[in-house]
Nucleic acid binder design. Structure first.
Lengths: 218, 218, 218, 218
DNA sequence: TATGAATGAGTGTTCATTCAT
DNA sequence: CATGAATGAACACTCATTCAT
């Protein structure tokens, strides 16, 4: 990254996971998770650029050096955050409406998805901030570049539903599934960047209407 | 002689405007512009968090202190960048198709807009990166928060065209102009955050199709 | 990685006490003391305004950042110096005349005091310089303002002796103890500011004579 | 001083008064005085160490570079202040009591002096601060060391009065004039360093009483 | 005379990282 | 496992001084 590593530093690959194998105790795992969580929240608050390793350690209540025991490098910490953010992020469901235990159709799944989007933007807006932060950061940091895989997973997730919808006859047969997924993702990414957070919900509504109309057109 | 520590500083005149009013020569103005430009490009390359004042000065070929003569603070520099990025950013037109000197209808204007979007993403992708960087940074820096005004201008710009289109009968009368502008903006903001830049063009195409269809529906 | 600009700092924990509570080892205490000592001597040499944190660190033989580990701020270092200078400064005794192990009367104590004054001006003239430097600096720095407490302690110390002398019948009963202490202090403070250090001793002698005469007058 | 002069700098002597001869117009003289005045007050406010050439220029309303035209060096400015502070400082009289145009005896002159001291500490306490600041600064700056001459003049001034008093029979014949002057000066210098400015007046009173008693003793 | 512009050499402070214990 | 101590390499910002105009 920006700063040259100290002269005696080993190669990137060596260093990143130097201690990892030994951290397998329940305690250690718990602490790992806590550190990742704290990092996640701090990124949401101060951004990737404003993230201070010291703050992460403080928030978890451990020493600066202890953090480095678990994550030898700041980059490795960011990497861990991006990984954990992956699939979990995209598929995190909206709270199911009570009694809706039955299997959902693809159309309903997409409705759920947009509902979930609005819900998450309300309850956990940091998630989107963090994702965007990491994306921007990934432009210049190879270590974090793995966040970009989120897009692939995301696209796969949406494509699956859309394909299902086509098969179920909810969406038109010639729907460009991959492309549609991309359009939805682009919208989702831009949404939290709107200067007027109070208009996000209605914006989702309109976009959802566009999608459903366009996906169903004869 | 002695040099006083920063904290004790805050001397006689208002720090923020110590030099600003005195820059009056054409030379000075030119240099000012050059510094803003360099900052702009460096943000595109390294992000707001990775921006180093030293790099800006070096790129323009002036001394570190010279930069501070024009912009007493890093924040003031960022602020200048955000201001310059404003209206110019949103309305920057795609190159007119040859021979198209005639007045464009609102529908054509929107077509131009999406064309321009693709064009800009190709020729000046940094612009979007910078905008997004500044937006994210604005979340924690009041100084830069003025970037948010870009959204207002952006919305006004699109709303004007849309309203015109409604009046001209190109778009349906009940089109929610303000909301539609917002949806478009959200999409535009998310677009450059797509992990696959090569798919941006086709994504614009699909979104444009959605828009035109939905805006024209009886 | 990235480094954040100082202004944006102010992270998680309270900056002022980020490290302080954690210094617990004997080693650390020793280093702390060493840093204070070095600061003390450098103030004597170059004055408060000429004090450079870098010089302090160098003199102790540690890194610039190490100093900041112990004293997060230049001010905190100055504060530490002023505190340490406190009572110790005023009451630091002249070397006892040989065989004078017996308890001293108040009159003798005052004689000792003036003797000690001359002695200290000879052996440790910096002490007075430092005190005066800090006093002057305290006029504009609240952090150091605690030095002013030295005066209170100083006055208390002298008042005690004088009161004792009155009770013992060495000094006249109507002696304005508090006021006399103040006069002595004023003299002591001005003494090291004399342009002719070689005349300090005789000046003390004369002032002492004045004091003893005036304090004993029927 | 602390900072090494730029490589091409001429010798000290050359530089200090490079332009001086040409500044002989009324305008220039006035500006000179104004700059010295501003410097004087700024030293009182922020101390020698806190003095910023930029602030001096700003306060007088001229450009940074203009100041350097009159005083090519910060040191030369300080030097000018110390010189101007010289005799004027010591002999500045208390406002004569109305109708007291008659010639004063030496005893009365000393009474006036102490009265003047109290008066000045009230009306122009900065004067003492500046003197002390400059004295302390003179310890490491040869350029300012000329302030020390103030002491000589001061001593001469007091000695003259005291000698006159001896001749007039007001003071005892064996009074050590030079030494007494020194004692008074030491007291005067320390007085403004008292942490309790409200006690200065009474402290002067007591010291004056000591002086008159001791100087008159058979 | 006066000034806008420019700069070299600091100056205090920050922070990720290392290491002995 | 955990921590207190230590550090190198920045980093934004300051200031006296110079120079062309």
């Amino acid at each position: 990254m920006e700063k040259m590593p100290p002269p005696e530093a080993a190669s990137e690959a060596d260093r990143t996971w130097r201690h990892a194998p030994s951290i397998r105790t329940a305690q250690g795992d718990e602490r790992r998770r806590a550190l990742i969580q704290a990092t996640y929240h701090l990124i949401a608050e101060k951004g990737v650029g404003g993230l201070r390793i010291h703050d992460v350690a403080t928030r978890v209540g451990v020493n600066n050096a202890t953090l480095h025991y678990y994550f030898p490098t700041k980059d490795s910490l960011l990497q861990a955050v991006s990984e954990q953010l992956g699939y979990e992020f995209i598929t995190s469901p909206a709270p199911a409406a009570p009694g809706e235990t039955a299997e959902r159709t693809a159309r309903e799944k997409m409705q759920d998805y947009f509902k979930s989007l609005a819900y998450q933007l309300h309850t956990a807006p940091e998630r989107f901030v963090v994702i965007n932060e990491l994306f921007l950061a990934a432009r210049r940091d190879e270590q974090i570049a793995r966040v970009l895989e989120v897009d692939t997973q995301w696209q796969a997730y949406l494509s699956a539903i859309l394909t299902e919808g086509v098969q179920q006859g909810h969406f038109r047969p010639d729907l460009d599934v991959a492309q549609t997924a991309l359009t939805i993702i682009a919208f989702c990414k831009g949404l939290p960047l709107l200067a007027t957070p109070d208009r996000q919900e209605s914006t989702i509504a309109q976009f959802a209407e566009w999608f459903f109309t366009m996906a169903s057109l004869a």
